[in-house]
């Protein structure tokens, strides 16, 4: 898939995020919108997956450690064909499969149940260890949040990925700089992030997380790195693509109203036109 096609998919994912949150009246738009290019690049370019066979033993795995961004994952899975797009409208509703946070028992294509922050990288490491034991060449991707960097378990896991030379693990840090109570710097400073991960013996790549070309290159580089895990620190904008949500901590966990949703969709459709 071409890079321009990936940009269009990111735009589609954003529209789906808005539309499902308007329907559910509940969910997390900010950190879902910030990760749209990352998921588009992973699911439509980088990962070896087959929506016809979600449990394929040789597939690449994806762990959404920042599980509250479930809407962007669901949008990507639906777009990829794991389930019909209409299912997106059932987000967070009783008896439906799309849970508030990813549930591997309920949703095809979800490789790990996540949402309680800090736990995803450990699970990714476990899958990667199993892959090495089985002599399989699948890779494991984990999307982390920057607020999540305050969780001790992340650093326990980071140490273990490097200790076990898990070069089949690629983490992506959605570095949007905001969390519920404000900027990540003001709530709990985790800077300097790149230096921390380097100190934990990871290969670190820093990119603009909305630049698809840069993301494609970063993933290509990560694939070449042997003997150690790679983290792609992707600088992003929380709420990206919707003017009134961009860089606003208040849009972390609040769903847009019908009117706000229409405004957001209008902006995203206009952006889509510029993508040709």
């Amino acid at each position: 898939m071409t890079n321009i096609a990936l940009k269009r998919i990111a735009n589609t994912l954003r529209q789906d995020i808005i539309s499902m949150l308007v329907t559910s009246k509940s969910g997390h738009p900010g950190g879902s919108l910030s990760a749209a290019e990352i998921l588009a690049t992973l699911f439509f370019r980088e990962m070896r997956i087959n929506p016809e066979d979600p449990r394929w033993a040789d597939r690449d795995r994806f762990v959404l450690s920042k599980g509250h961004a479930a809407p962007v994952l669901y949008a990507a899975l639906a777009e990829k064909g794991y389930f019909p797009k209409e299912e997106l409208q059932g987000l967070r509703q009783t008896g439906r499969m799309l849970q508030g946070h990813p549930d591997m028992k309920k949703t095809p294509g979800v490789d790990m149940s996540t949402g309680s922050l800090g736990q995803g990288l450990s699970a990714a490491n476990g899958m990667a260890l199993a892959g090495k034991l089985d002599g399989k060449d699948y890779r494991v991707f984990a999307l982390l949040g920057d607020g999540e960097m305050a969780e001790g378990q992340i650093w326990e896991a980071a140490m273990a990925s490097a200790h076990y030379n898990l070069d089949n693990v690629t983490a992506v840090l959605d570095f949007n700089g905001l969390q519920i109570d404000g900027t990540t710097d003001s709530v709990m400073c985790s800077n300097p992030l790149a230096e921390k991960w380097r100190a934990f013996c990871w290969h670190v790549i820093e990119v603009d997380g909305h630049d698809v070309d840069a993301l494609v290159e970063a993933f290509a580089e990560a694939k070449q790195v042997k003997g150690k895990p790679t983290i792609i620190i992707a600088k992003t904008v929380k709420g990206k693509g919707v003017s009134f949500m961009e860089d606003q901590a208040g849009w972390h966990g609040n769903a847009p109203s019908v009117e706000q949703g229409e405004q957001a969709l209008k902006e995203l459709r206009e952006e889509a036109l510029t993508l040709g």
Partner: peptide, 14 residues
């Protein structure tokens, strides 16, 4: 915490 989380990932992969 990582002990249990890693075990979960290993189990998820069979």
């Amino acid at each position: 915490a990582n002990l249990i989380g890693t075990a979960a990932g290993l189990a998820a992969a069979g």
